[in-house]
Amino acid sequence: MKVLVGIKRVIDYNVRVQINREGTDVVKEGVKMSINPFDEIAVEAALRIREAGQADEVIVATIGPGAAQQQLRTALAMGADRAILLETDREIQPLAAARALMKLVEKEQPGLVLLGKQAIDDDANQVGQMLAAQWDRPQATFISGLDLSDGKLKAVREVDAGLETVEVSLPAVLTVDLRLNEPRFVKMPDIMKAKRKPLETIAFDSIGIDMPPQLENLGYEAPPKRSGGVRVDSVEALVAALNDKGVL
C-alpha cells in the first residue's frame, strides 16, 4: 500500500505575522518558512505505518512555489520515500488544492491519504474533507489515534464533545490533530540521504484540473486590540475589581 501525505509550506509557527503597509498581504519576505506543523504530524504518522509493515511507500506532495522543495526535502529527511511538487506561484485555495491532490490520487492509487487538519496560515480546515468528497471515500478528521488492521482503520477523533471513534474502509482520507504523535527530529545523515531521494516537479497548470472559483481577498487587518488592564496585588483587590466590573 502507498500512503500519500499532503504538506504545505507556511510561515513558521514561531514567527509573529505582520501585515504589509498596504494591507494587501502578510509579510512573507525574509520570514522563516516551515512545514505546516499539523502536516509534519501527518508525515510522522505515515512513516510509522510504513515502519509497522503496513505500507510500502510514503509519498509526500505539496502545491506551491519552487521554494517549497525545502519542505519536501525535510519530509524526505524524516523518511518519506519520494516527493512531488505541483509548482505554481499562484494562490491555490482549498477546493483547487483538493482537485489537484485528486489528480495525484488517480495517478498513484494510494490506500491512505494523510493531511494536517488545517494549515496554520489560512486556518481553513477544508482540504482533507474536500478531497474525500472528490474521491467519494470515507474521511476521519481531527484524529488523535489510529489503528490499522485487515484493510480497516479505526480512528479516534478529537471532537468538541470528547473522543469519537469511527471505523473506515480503505482507501480513506485522514486529517490529523496535534496529539496523534510527536514528529521525529531529523538527523544530519538523513538530510544528506534526502538529497538523493526522488523529487518530481510538475507544473500545476499542466495537471489539467477544472479550476474552481476562489474567494476574492479584499484586504488584511490586525484584529482589534484589547485595551490594557489593571494589576492588582491581592485576592481582596481582585474580588473588588471583579465586583467593579459587575461579573460576580
Partner: peptide, 23 residues
C-alpha cells in the same frame, strides 16, 4: 464552526464545486 460543522461542510462545498468561507 464546531468540529461538527468543520467536518461536514467542506465535504458539501466540494460536492457542489464552490469555495467555503470558514469561521
Amino acid at each position: 464552526s464546531s468540529t461538527f460543522g468543520r467536518d461536514i461542510l467542506p465535504r458539501v462545498a466540494a460536492l457542489l464545486g464552490v469555495p467555503q468561507i470558514s469561521d
